[in-house]
Amino acid sequence: MELENTQIIKDTQDWLEKAVIGLNLCPFAKAVHVKQQIRYVVSTAKTEAALLDDLLQELDFLMAADPEVVDTTLLIHPWVLTDFLDYNDFLDVADGAAAEPEFNDALQIASFHPQYQFADTELDDIANFTNRSPYPMLHLLREDSIDRAVAAFPEADAIYEKNMQTLRELGLAGWKKLMAT
């Protein structure tokens, strides 16, 4: 299991470096990556209930952690919610967990999945790849970190459109080539 988890984390880091940072899909990711402030956790959950337990544990961990040491967490869950529609339904549960009073509105969750599909898009629309990851995962973020990043990047609301344009220019063949290297 440990070797398998190591490979899952390596695959995730590879995607982060090539796509998220390499294509600048998230201009805030590079700093926490370089400073090694990203916590990678592979959940062994095989049920939604077990994943919710892992999520609550990671939310607690992130709240207690020094942001200079751990600023964000990628909770990777390769054995549960592998179907995107099931995963998408679970996001309401995950958001509800992050909104619990003990987290004091300090955390939020971003979503990534190998089959990610925005509403009103075709499955193979390259725009969906902005949120496609090698495994299903929940990205746990600190609100304070988001606020600081947005303050440093005044056009943060344009990131989404820029990402779609970047991927349209890259195309599906370019994406496949990028991820194969």
Rank of each mutant, 00 (worst) to 15 (best):
L91N: 15
D92Y: 07
L123Q: 15
L62S: 01
F103Y: 13
V80I: 07
D71K: 11
A98E: 00
D120F: 01
D125N: 09
A98Q: 12
N104C: 12
I126Q: 00
T82S: 06
F103S: 11
A65E: 13
L81I: 06
V80E: 00
I109M: 01
D83Y: 01
I109E: 08
N88S: 11
N88I: 05
V80N: 04
I109N: 06
A99Q: 15
L62K: 05
Q115Y: 05
G96Y: 08
T121G: 07
P78N: 02
D86N: 12
A110C: 09
D60I: 04
S111W: 05
L91K: 15
Q57C: 13
L75E: 06
D54L: 09
D95N: 15
T121C: 03
D95T: 14
E58W: 00
D105P: 01
D92L: 12
D54V: 01
F84Y: 10
P78F: 00
D120T: 14
E68S: 06
N104F: 03
L85S: 14
L75V: 07
I76E: 04
F84R: 01
D105T: 13
L56R: 09
F118R: 01
V70T: 12
F61H: 09
D124R: 14
V69R: 13
N104K: 05
I126K: 01
D89Q: 03
